[in-house]
């Protein structure tokens, strides 16, 4: 709708939404809430990106993880017996007795192809059995392997235990991250609720007038619910944009580690998550609105 010319006065001009409605006032309180919620969502996004990187890195080398069991003074019979027992264990995908030649090649490469030294060492080396874990082998596989190996007088490579624990560690971290996200979401709901409560107080004349005109409670609440959702979504979008600088800063390092990270996967969760906490905050703020329809005398 085109504006009619002024009557020579400097009239206030405000941008209008479709339908001719003015944008709601966006003052200092809203800006502060937007910044605080943006920072909170940015932090949450950063944590989840870190989780993503960690999971990707762990998965990268865990696909190739093998356990090695060493049997001192090996003989073929004992090695076969041990390998058979290991093969029968649940969570074990494959068992292989590492041939001496392969061990020699590995040592040659490691020691710099010093053949004489390798010969002496070859005599003293324990027999090696390589165990390939299944895809979902469970967190107790290493302990079970260690027990089995011990029963034959063998031992499992201890260094590989830490690698196994990494996966369960990531699972624990993810649980903690969910808990932290919920706590931060609760804090954001309270912040937005407080902001909108102040907004409602500032616009109490509008609320009162709508009630005098016979508006339903949802009609009165709807603008504030909408504002809360927009505030949250806006904060989520901004928070997502702020993820890019730190992501670009560590991109080289992540590439070296072989960890794949994509922040695009966080865009929708931050937008909708922000909108949800904003809406919940607004719902909390408007729930405490005292009805002024009729006061008993």
């Amino acid at each position: 709708m085109p504006r009619k010319p002024d009557h020579g006065m400097q009239e206030r001009r405000m941008p209008r939404l479709p339908g001719g409605f003015s944008l709601p006032p966006f003052g200092l309180h809203q800006w502060l809430a937007l910044i605080i919620v943006c920072i909170a969502l940015w932090a949450v996004g950063l944590f989840w990106l870190g989780m993503q990187a960690g999971s990707s890195w762990v998965q990268g080398w865990q696909q190739d993880i093998r356990f090695h069991i060493y049997l001192e003074h090996p003989d073929a019979t004992r090695m076969q017996q041990l390998a058979g027992k290991l093969r029968a264990m649940p969570g074990v995908a494959g068992v292989r007795i590492v041939p001496k030649d392969e061990t020699r090649s590995w040592l040659d490469a490691w020691l710099g192809a010093s053949g004489a030294l390798s010969d002496e060492l070859m005599q003293a080396l324990p027999g090696s059995i390589e165990v390939t874990p299944a895809a979902h082998s469970g967190e107790f596989l290493y302990a079970d392997l260690a027990d089995m190996a011990r029963s034959f007088g063998a031992a499992v490579n201890r260094g590989e235990a830490h690698l196994v624990q990494a996966r369960s560690l990531m699972a624990h971290v993810e649980q903690l991250l969910w808990f932290g996200t919920l706590i931060i979401a609760l804090a954001m709901i309270i912040i937005i609720s407080n902001t909108l409560r102040m907004t409602m107080l500032a616009r109490s004349d509008e609320v009162q007038l709508m009630r005098l005109l016979g508006a339903s409670e949802w009609f009165v609440r709807m603008p504030f619910l909408f504002e809360g959702a927009l505030l949250g979504a806006g904060a989520g979008g901004l928070g997502w944009l702020l993820l890019w600088p730190p992501l670009l800063a560590v991109s080289g390092w992540l590439e070296q580690l072989g960890a794949e990270v994509s922040s695009f996967g966080l865009l929708l969760p931050l937008l909708f998550g922000g909108a949800l906490v904003g809406w919940l905050g607004a719902l909390l703020a408007t729930t405490r609105m005292a009805s002024e329809n009729t006061a008993p005398a």
Binding site: M14, G20, S22, E206, L209, L213, G214, A215, F219
Partner: peptide, 18 residues
Amino acid sequence: RLLFSRTVFENVALPLRV
């Protein structure tokens, strides 16, 4: 009891929207 943060149109249209 006009809403000064709203235009004349919005003030007049409020009962209609309700």
